[in-house]
Amino acid sequence: MKKEAAITCVFVDIGGVLLTNGWDHHARKRAAENFKLEWAEMEDRHRLNFATYEEGKLTLEEYLSRTVFYEERPFTRDQFRGFMFAQSRAFPEMIKLICRLKAKFGLKIVVLSNEARELNAHRIHKFKLNAFVDCFISSCFVHLRKPDADIFKLAMDIAQAPAEHIIYIENTPRFAQIAEDLGIRSILHTDYPSTCVQLASFGLQYDEGVSHEIR
């Protein structure tokens, strides 16, 4: 039996793995309720613009003009932006896990995510993701979005890591399958304990007693 190649690089999603989703259906629903917006109208406008927005071809201001501020509102853009940014929360266990594995095994950590530029920048800064991530292959930077296989190929080129040396942690089955089709072994993330077990099966197990979290 052919021995599997050792993992030297981790591709990891942000939303749903390291952090909550930044601007998903639930966050938009909360925004509509908080600002008393017509949900159906807002969601229709969002669907027309979100792909272009996440690909970095619309600024946040342009996105807001098309989805919310196409008419006068009793609240400001600053108030709405603040609400958007406040929806993000960290999954501390997952962040610590990636930091510990990086420290123990000398792994290269690559974020591979669909996120819009301003929200992506906010999340990277607020949760100090750049303290342990080596590079960010964000849709807003590279103008490609999952499920386009080209974003995975670009990430491999930038990371200089062949598929057989990569493990990908992703919470969306369709995206994990695309990675598998390219020869990248993938973990469909549902929760911290099961992801730890799956990582250990690939030889990536850390000592619970050793802490390398961000200071």
Rank of each mutant, 00 (worst) to 15 (best):
R66H: 09
R145H: 11
A200V: 03
D191G: 02
T52E: 15
H125K: 09
Q177D: 14
F132P: 02
G183D: 12
N120K: 07
H189F: 09
T20R: 09
L37R: 04
D157S: 11
R185Q: 07
I166G: 03
V68M: 13
R45H: 13
N34H: 15
T190Q: 05
E41G: 10
V68H: 05
L112Y: 01
A131I: 00
D44I: 11
F136L: 01
L18P: 00
H25F: 08
K146C: 13
I187T: 02
H165Q: 15
A31L: 15
A86I: 03
D157K: 14
L101C: 08
R215V: 13
F202T: 00
N34Y: 14
E41V: 10
A86G: 11
I137S: 05
L107I: 10
E213G: 09
K153H: 11
T195P: 00
T76S: 15
L182K: 07
H189G: 01
V133K: 04
P193S: 05
I98G: 01
Y63N: 04
E4Y: 10
Y70T: 00
K104Y: 07
E180I: 06
F132I: 02
V111S: 09
A40D: 13
Q87H: 15
L101R: 00
L58C: 12
E93W: 02
K128P: 01
D207T: 05
D13Y: 05
A51F: 13
Q205N: 10
M1P: 04
